[in-house]
Simulated scan of single mutants.
Amino acid sequence: MATPLRFRADVLSKKAQAVGDTTNFDIAVRTGVRESTISRLMAGLTMPTVGTLGAIAVAYGTTLDDLVAGLVAKVPVSRTEEAA
């Protein structure tokens, strides 16, 4: 079963505060994302599009992985050698 994804508003908040962006308006100006969208993201009411995630990541020098919780790759383990 797939793990549900969740936007990490806490990460955005910390990144924004680190550069002096203290309001949703400041974040919107820096990212080019509408203030209403930022407000909904910060309140946990919506999941951003890939484009919005990209704009936020570029604006704050972070990665998509940092901004989204639940991205856990399950890699199957294969045995290459028989147990001795």
Rank of each mutant, 00 (worst) to 15 (best):
A16Q: 01
V11E: 03
M42T: 02
M1V: 09
R40Y: 09
P48D: 04
I27P: 02
A84T: 10
S78H: 05
R79L: 11
V19Q: 10
L45G: 12
S39T: 15
R30W: 07
L45P: 01
E81C: 14
S39P: 00
S36R: 12
T22P: 00
K74H: 13
A16C: 01
A55F: 07
P76S: 12
E35S: 11
P4S: 11
V72Y: 06
S78T: 05
E35V: 14
I27C: 05
G51W: 13
S39G: 10
G44F: 11
V68I: 15
L12Q: 00
R8N: 14
A18E: 09
A83S: 09
E81V: 15
T31F: 06
L41R: 02
A16W: 01
A9N: 03
V72L: 12
F7D: 00
K14P: 00
F25T: 15
R40P: 00
K15D: 01
R30G: 05
L12K: 00
T31M: 04
G51Y: 12
T49P: 06
F25I: 15
F7Y: 08
Y60W: 03
S78W: 06
T46G: 09
T37E: 06
E35Q: 14
V68E: 02
A55C: 12
R79W: 04
A28R: 03
M42K: 11
T52H: 09
V50P: 05
P4G: 07
Q17I: 03
G32L: 06
G54K: 09
A16L: 02
R30K: 14
T49V: 10
A28V: 09
V58Q: 06
V75G: 07
G32I: 07
I56L: 08
K74M: 12
P76E: 12
G61D: 06
A55S: 15
D26C: 04
R8Y: 08
G20L: 04
R6I: 08
G70L: 03
L41F: 09
A9F: 02
M42Y: 02
A55V: 08
T80D: 07
R30M: 08
R34H: 15
